[in-house]
Amino acid sequence: MTNEEIIRIINDSLIKEFELDSKKMVPEAVLYDDLELDSLDRVDMVIVLENAFKFKIREEKEIRDIRTLGDIHSFVINKIREIERVS
């Protein structure tokens, strides 16, 4: 899976689950201010990503540092590449 495909899946999943405006889905979008996701949405977001990519990330400490959509893209891409290396 290419980085572009991963980013597309992430964006589509978040747009669908949280009814986000696709025009706002830019890497620098801040989750709280620009996408208006609250603290509960961040928990739900982890579930959405786990469902989309069939991995478990809810215990990962780096999730707490995620602030922007670009951070999510980087986190998921790194996670998938890590899984690919191990398997």
């Binding site: 949280f18 009814e19 986000l20 609250d38 509960l40 949405d41 739900d44």
Partner: peptide, 10 residues
């Protein structure tokens, strides 16, 4: 109807 937040349902 806008997007729904999760609080009430949680």
């Amino acid at each position: 109807l806008g997007r729904f937040y999760s609080g009430a349902f949680k």
